[in-house]
Amino acid sequence: MRLHVATEDEIRRGETADVYFRRIRKVLEEEGLADTEVVAEISTRSLPEGWEWGVLCGVEEALALLEGRDVTVYAMDEGEVFRPGQPVMRIEGPYVEFCELETALIGCLAKATGIATKAARCKVAAGGKPVYSFGIRRQHPAIAPMVDRAAYVGGCDGVSGIKGAELIGERPVGTMPHAFVLVFGDQRKAWRAFDEHVPEDVPRIALVDTMYDEVEEALMAAEELRERLDGVRLDTPSSRRGDMAEIVREVRWELDLRGYEHVKIMVSGGLDEGEIRRLAEVGADAFGVGTAISDAPAVDFAMDLVEIEGEPRSKRGKLSGAKQVWRCPNCLDDVVLPRGKEPSPCPECGSEREPLLRKFVEEGEVVREPKSPKEARRHVLETVGELEGLDLTE
Results as ranks from 00 to 15, higher is better:
Leu3Ile: 03
Glu10Ile: 00
Glu15Val: 11
Arg22Trp: 03
Glu37Thr: 01
Ser43Leu: 15
Thr44Trp: 05
Thr44Cys: 15
Leu47Tyr: 08
Pro48Phe: 13
Cys57Ile: 11
Leu63Arg: 05
Tyr74Asp: 12
Asp77Pro: 02
Gly79Glu: 08
Gly85Tyr: 02
Gln86Leu: 00
Cys99Leu: 13
Lys111Gln: 13
Lys118Asn: 09
Ala120Ser: 03
Cys122Leu: 13
Ala125Ser: 08
Ala125Asp: 01
Ala144Gly: 15
Arg149Cys: 02
Ala150Thr: 10
Val153Cys: 05
Val153Lys: 10
Asp157Thr: 09
Ser160Leu: 15
Ala165Thr: 05
Thr175Ile: 11
Phe180Gly: 04
Val181Gly: 14
Phe184Thr: 03
Trp191Gln: 15
Glu196Arg: 11
Pro203Tyr: 13
Met211His: 15
Val215Arg: 12
Glu216Cys: 05
Arg226Phe: 07
Arg240Leu: 11
Arg249Thr: 07
Gly259Leu: 07
Val263Pro: 12
Ile265Arg: 08
Glu275Ala: 12
Gly290Val: 01
Ala292Gly: 11
Ala296Pro: 07
Phe301Pro: 13
Leu305Tyr: 05
Gly310His: 04
Glu311Gln: 13
Arg313Gln: 07
Gln324Val: 02
Asn330Ile: 08
Leu332Ser: 00
Asp333Pro: 01
Asp334Ser: 06
Pro345His: 05
Val361Pro: 13
Glu363Ile: 00
Val366Ala: 12
Arg377Leu: 00
Val384Asp: 06
